[in-house]
């Protein structure tokens, strides 16, 4: 009788001895980390929303600022390149989830293949963001005229007129009279770009671990799943940055 009771423990989820959430320690805390990171990004985007409502009417139109495409210089293609970057990140998100799925089948070759594609997608995204920062900082050519260019700025409350300045830095930008526009661009896309960069590094580390057979020794590929959670989170943040910074 007592042996039977020991063989079948009659314990409920919240009475100890098991995880009430049905996940391992590492995955649970990956989720908690992602929630806290999501709150950081939400506060940044909410600060952006505050400024945008405060300076309603003076804010730059994103489709007049981001209208360049590599190898098609001088053509007016508003938001096309940002659309490509979004596509690239969604695509790499799919390859990551396929790597996770292959890990559930313990198929090492497929995990390596899909992780490789994910890393390539991450590098394309980081490179695209560098290219976009370069164009944002150097600005349009002086001969180029389009609606929405201001050559007047407010620096520390002083009104400055500089007809020769194009581009942007933390103090002034030639897209609006508001330095806040440039500041938020650098802050939000920079913070997100840094997350993508760290995600690529994490994926490379996981790739090397899988290639060395560490996961096979452990008997499960949950590390790929945890790295995947982080990578999907980066994609999730970009979906919101894309909407609130570029589309609206």
């Amino acid at each position: 009788m007592s042996n039977q009771a020991a063989a079948v423990p009659l314990r409920k989820d919240w009475e100890g001895g098991v995880s009430p959430f049905g996940v391992s320690y590492g995955k649970l805390f990956m989720w908690f980390f992602l929630v806290s990171d999501a709150l950081t990004f939400s506060s940044l985007l909410c600060a952006y929303g505050f400024m945008r409502h405060k300076f309603f009417g003076d804010w730059a139109h994103p489709n007049e600022v981001f209208h360049h495409f590599p190898f098609l210089e001088g053509k007016n293609l508003p938001l096309a390149y940002v659309g490509f970057m979004t596509f690239d990140l969604i695509m790499s998100s799919v390859t990551m989830v396929l790597a996770v799925e292959a890990g559930h089948r313990k198929n090492r070759k497929q995990v390596l293949m899909w992780l490789f594609f994910t890393i390539i997608g991450g590098f394309i995204f980081v490179g695209s963001q560098c290219w976009e920062w370069y164009h944002f900082i150097t600005g349009p050519e002086l001969s180029e005229t389009y609606h929405g260019v201001f050559r007047e700025y407010f620096v520390n409350g002083r009104h400055i007129v500089n007809p020769h300045f194009t581009g942007a830095n933390l103090m002034v930008n030639s897209y609006t009279m508001l330095p806040t526009f440039g500041d938020f661009f650098f802050c939000i896309t920079g913070f997100h770009g840094f997350h993508v960069f760290s995600g690529v590094i994490i994926n490379i580390v996981i790739f090397i671990m899988v290639a060395n057979g560490v996961m096979d020794k452990r008997g499960h590929y949950e590390m790929v799943e945890k790295a995947g959670l982080y990578w999907h989170f980066v994609d999730l943040v970009w979906v919101f940055v894309f909407t609130f910074f570029y589309l609206l």
Binding site: G22, V23, S24, K27, H104, R105, G219, H220, E225
Partner: peptide
């Protein structure tokens, strides 16, 4: 829990 998601 690490091995629960493994499938065929």
């Amino acid at each position: 829990y690490e091995k629960m998601a493994i499938h065929d």
